[in-house]
Amino acid sequence: MAEVRLRVNGADHPLDIQPQVSLLDALREHLGLTGTKKGCDQGACGACTVLADGERINSCLALAVQYEGAEITTIEGIDHPLQAAFVRHDGFQCGYCTSGQICSAVGMLAEHKEGMPSAVTGQGSGSHLSGAEIRERMSGNLCRCGAYNGIVEAIQEVAG
């Protein structure tokens, strides 16, 4: 067992957990923050996306102990215009990937603002967040219901 102090959504949580507990399981099983989802537990679907110090990560491949001291934000700690935009544009069906999509989109918008390029960013291309840019940048979040169009529209609306 290891004593770990996790900072989640602005609050400190002392935890006594084994080192193999993932950040995802720490959130879901130990802190009761079940908004973050487990889809594959192998970094292949993005349902577990949370923000660590403002950057999106897959919490299933993060050991909780490793993220001691980091500011973790989960869907429960997010209050963002994207959430209403997802509803308006029907950016989900079953809702299981939605927390991950929203956390990922929040992180993505910040990355883009800071000049992070993507695989489709052309050399010297401007700062416009096109549909193609959003699709590439969001490709780490699978949606099996196929709500991709609505998700992209919601992000586009919020990005302006």
């Binding site: 996306t49 999106r56 990922s104 992180g107 993505m108 990355e111 993507s118």
Partner: peptide
């Protein structure tokens, strides 16, 4: 990979 994985 994905943006999330590249951040890690």
């Amino acid at each position: 990979a994905s943006a999330q994985l590249r951040n890690m």
